[in-house]
Design a protein around this nucleic acid. Structure first.
Lengths: 129, 129
DNA sequence: ATAGACCCTTGAGTGGACTCTAAGTCAAGT
DNA sequence: ACTTGACTTAGAGTCCACTCAAGGGTCTAT
């Protein structure tokens, strides 16, 4: 697969794909004799993983470390797992923050819709609390 | 309340508090005769709101627009509500992305723990899929 | 064999959100 | 009166994650 095809498939710009490879967020992609990138299915799986993690806000740094360890082989097993566990925890915390903000937005929108009785209006002014 | 007290209370640096005020993410704070910020409870509510929304990744831009409209008064009601509704939608999408990444991390960690039977190992290599 | 579309690398530029610096003011304590 | 430390502003600097530009090579169709 060419970079343009992969770019369309995953909706990541060719620039971004090259950037991800350059910094090691995905392992380096094989080339044709003339030096043009030729993405394999395995490359695509790495890209999909990267896209999923990045869209969730997992830092590039952690993913780069993971990929580097992965390429070093079996004896990095524990370290790799630890990265995943750490990032899972970060993600859980972030989801909780977002849920709190979502609850708050729902509350505020309800006020705007007069769905919630304005019992403690003194704190609200549609709506800081 | 001084900026140092507010900074401690909300765990935001004094620089960040001044920055938020400067860009209009919170309405401007009153000063003492000598020009020092004196935060009221209402100011603190704005800060808490800003902190909550920012920690969930709501863009500063949207919050600035909301605050500006809020200060313009009643006839911006609909526009303000629309901002909230839009941001709620963005937040929901983002939570879905994060949930997908979390599911994937859980799956990968389970592989690392040999909890999941390695049935389709050819795609996994602990673990791209 | 030449146009036009696509690809390459290196390195610089951008935008968002802070974060820090410089130069100065002010209040409290000694 | 002087030091100390927290406050002020305007503006510059930093970090992250891209994104673009320059200058060039490659592929395909006519």
């Amino acid at each position: 697969m060419t970079i343009a095809e992969v770019s369309r498939k995953y909706e990541l710009s060719a620039d971004t794909l090259r950037y991800y490879e350059r910094i090691g967020l995905i392992p380096s992609v094989g080339r044709t004799e003339s030096g043009i990138r030729n993405y394999t299915d395995a490359d695509c799986q790495w890209i999909e993983l990267a896209k999923c993690m990045r869209s969730a806000g997992v830092q590039i740094d952690a993913l780069v470390r993971y990929v580097a360890l992965f390429q070093q082989g079996e004896d990095t097993f524990d370290e790799r797992k630890q990265i995943l566990v750490d990032q899972r925890e970060r993600l859980r915390e972030h989801i909780a923050d977002m849920q709190a903000a979502l609850d708050r937005l729902n509350h505020k929108i309800a006020r705007y819709e007069n769905v919630v009785e304005p019992v403690e209006n003194d704190l609200c002014h549609i709506c800081k609390k």
